[in-house]
Design a protein around this nucleic acid. Structure first.
Length: 670
RNA sequence: GCUGCUGUAGCUCAGAGGUAGAGCACUCCCUUGGUAAGGGAGAGGUCGAGAGUUCAAUUCUCUCCAGCAGCACCA
């Protein structure tokens, strides 16, 4: 038998017979390591303890102390254990695939009857039984025909399909057994089921999923589980979910009386005064920033004839996402009966799903000179998209929304500078809005694309240089660009670590081409401008949702819909309360009085739950001394302050961050 | 759009083949109370919409609408 040399993490090497397994290696090192071992890293690959090693290699034996392999194995083995449990309970259920995902795993099953929440409990119980059996995990390599024959005989058509999809390039078809239960799997797996912590996983939910992720295929039932190394980590994760639930903007939107939605207008928002205050504050802020940033604000039509959408290419590709409006030009207002409609007079319009074609129309009016470039046209563009019903989600994913949209018309040579400018612009806004951390994803040329390679080289180079020029990092997403140009997507991180894609920057030579945009160059000839699509917040609707969830409704003072409630303790204070409220309002503070016949406890409770940042309580003493007692949201202690002082402080605190207010960074100081 | 679940008072939810209940909120009265619910009384519902079964449907069946979770989608 040939000898191979294995090198350990400490740098020592030892000679073994070729075909030795990591399990053998671990046993030679020590009995306890053999017992604790879960897998190995062999030349960087995650290696099952049972797989033979046939050539010289770097090897490290993993134990549960190695977090990444441990979690992967725990979750992967649980996927198998769950599938086994399901088939033990319902032998006629067909198994498909069960990968590891973030925080856990899922497994897709084909079963006639739906799994119920009670079933999940039963499956979990069975899984714990299997874990406690400490059944050995065993693996073998089979040849293709044997594997197919096996699954055909067992009535597992999905597995047959999976095997047929494995390219016949000599890669092994591997079987795994957890006890007697067998599954096709590339591994690796643990030594035995008892290595899985029995108290650190939970089945979360069951839902539909398509076979191979394709909506034309059979719908399967997917069971999701989460799993960790120990009970404590599971608890932390479940707490995180609870935390996210507490922040749900749909719930806070109702509790804070911000907006509502109703079935006559699915996917569209009815903004209430409180919510609209947040929205307009944000919009006013963006308007000031854009003005300062060299943008010119425009506004374009909502209902636009299909001719424009045909020219832009949207009619062909995105018609099913557009709200269509049929207009009968022959209507005279006297006779609106549909029966008299003259078809030849009917025009089809679409509600605009995006603003860019309209912006090109603005650009196209009059001759543009190279001296006009870069021309930055911004619009708070109200768009309507017919999103699939299942995609709708509160105010985050809607059918009617307003983008903080802008299109920069420029020359190729100006792209880099515009890109760098934009990243700085956006970084400053995110910072002021309380999101100092964001990530850039750089999506480059896809396989199917238009334009020459030289042009792609140039434009991608320009974006990359721009990111470097402003001193930022990025993650490359090769092949994820649009068919006409590369793009940057900007992802911000919220207070509980969730990541939201908001900003975007997209280079587009295509639409100017399609819509015939030109400018006169220094040479006197017509040239085609580039168009840069860009947004910072994305949509105001969604961004307000993100703000609500990020701050758990406790918005920074300048954004809080109701900033101050002045609450009377005794009715003798009512006049002074009114005076304080007026004085605050005169300083631009959104203040209201609460002189209801209720105890101060009641008022404090109600406004605290309503997330009002500042409550000023006024009793006989404050009237006497011309002071107020300040109670800030989230703090129990109160503070007596002279009226003039609090007016000055709150007046200053109410200013948006770009106008000298304290901003998001030190919202608590407001 | 697909699969599953859900839809009863403003909100959170209970309930049953014989046209409905709680808590909170709301209105009125008493209470003037010092920092997270003072007391009492009252009003409030076409039980998501339509059709079917039935002597009788809000309850059972079907269709539709909307919401929730996931999938697919997000130009």
């Amino acid at each position: 038998m040939a000898q191979i040399s294995l090198t350990f993490p400490d740098g020592n090497s030892r000679s073994f017979e070729a075909g030795v397994t990591p399990a053998d290696v671990a046993s030679e090192i020590s009995k306890s390591l053999a017992k604790k071992a879960i897998s190995a890293n062999v030349n960087g690959a995650h290696w099952d303890l049972q797989w033979p090693i046939v050539e010289d290699a770097q090897i490290a034996i993993n134990t549960m102390k190695d977090d990444a392999p441990a979690l992967e194995l725990i979750r992967h083995d649980l996927a198998h254990i769950m599938a086994r449990a399901v088939q033990e309970i319902w032998p006629d259920v067909k198994v498909t695939i069960g990968p590891v995902i973030e925080n856990g795993w899922y497994y897709d099953f084909d079963r006639q009857e739906p799994f119920t929440p009670e079933d999940l409990g039963e499956i979990e119980k069975k899984m714990r039984e299997i874990i406690n059996k400490r059944d050995a995990v065993r693996t073998e390599v089979w040849d293709r025909d044997r594997a197919i024959a096996h699954y055909e005989a067992n009535g597992e058509p999905y597995k047959v399909e999976l095997i047929n999809a494995i390219p016949d390039d000599g890669q092994p078809i591997r079987m795994y057994w957890h006890g007697d239960w067998q599954d096709l799997c590339r591994g690796p797996h643990l030594q035995h089921t008892g290595q899985v912590p029995a108290d650190a996983f939970k089945l979360m939910r069951v839902s539909g999923a398509y076979w191979r992720g394709d909506s034309r295929n059979a719908q399967l039932q997917r069971i999701y589980g989460v799993a960790f190394q120990n009970k404590e980590d599971l608890r932390k994760y479940l707490n995180f979910l609870e935390e996210a639930e507490k922040r749900d903007h749909r719930r806070l939107g109702r509790e804070m009386d911000l907006f509502h939605m109703q079935e006559e207008a699915p996917g569209q928002v009815f903004w209430h005064p409180n919510g609209w205050t947040i929205y307009t504050q944000l919009q006013d802020y963006m308007r000031r920033k854009q003005r300062a940033g060299g943008y010119k604000e425009i506004n374009t039509p909502q209902v636009v004839d299909r001719k424009l959408w045909e020219a832009s290419g949207h009619w062909e590709k995105y018609q099913h996402h557009m709200f269509l409006v049929e207009v009968d030009e022959s209507r005279d207002g006297e006779n609106d009966d549909a029966a008299v409609k003259d078809k030849s007079q009917t025009r089809i319009n679409a509600l605009k799903p995006m603003n860019c074609p309209c912006h090109v129309q603005v650009f196209n009016q009059g001759l543009k000179s190279y001296r006009d470039l870069p021309l930055r046209l911004a619009e708070f563009g109200s768009c309507a998209r017919f999103e699939p019903s299942g995609a709708l989600h509160g105010i985050m994913r809607v059918r009617g929304f307003t983008q903080d949209d802008a299109h920069i018309f420029c020359t190729e040579a100006q792209i880099q500078e515009e890109c760098a400018r934009f990243i700085d612009f956006l970084a400053n806004i995110y910072e002021e809005l309380g999101f100092p951390e964001f990530e850039i994803k750089f999506a480059t040329r896809p396989e199917k694309r238009v334009g020459s390679d030289e042009s792609w080289d140039y434009v991608e180079g320009a974006l990359e240089s721009a990111i470097k020029a402003v001193g930022r990092d990025y993650t490359l997403e090769p092949g994820d660009g649009a068919f006409y140009g590369p793009k940057l997507d900007f992802y911000l991180t919220d207070a509980i670590g969730r990541v939201w894609q908001c900003g975007t920057f997209q280079v587009d030579p295509n639409l100017p081409e399609r819509l015939g945009a030109t400018y006169i160059g220094a040479d006197g000839d017509k040239h085609r401008p580039f168009m840069l699509h860009r947004a910072c917040l994305g949509s105001f609707e969604r961004f307000v949702g993100i703000l609500i969830e990020n701050w758990e409704g406790k918005l920074p003072f300048w954004l809080a819909p109701r900033q101050v409630v002045v609450a009377s303790i005794v009715s003798d204070a009512d006049d002074y309360v009114a005076e304080v409220v007026s004085a605050l309002q005169a300083r631009g503070v959104r203040a209201e009085a609460d002189v209801r016949n209720e105890k101060i406890n009641y008022k404090v409770r109600e406004h605290s739950m309503g997330k009002v940042p500042v409550i000023l309580a006024i009793g006989a003493r404050e009237v006497e001394e011309r002071t107020v007692t300040v109670r800030r949201l989230g703090q129990k202690q109160t503070q007596v302050v002279a009226l003039d002082a609090i007016l000055a402080e709150l007046g200053q605190g109410a200013l948006p961050p770009d106008l000298g207010g304290p901003g998001a960074a030190d919202a608590d100081a407001a």
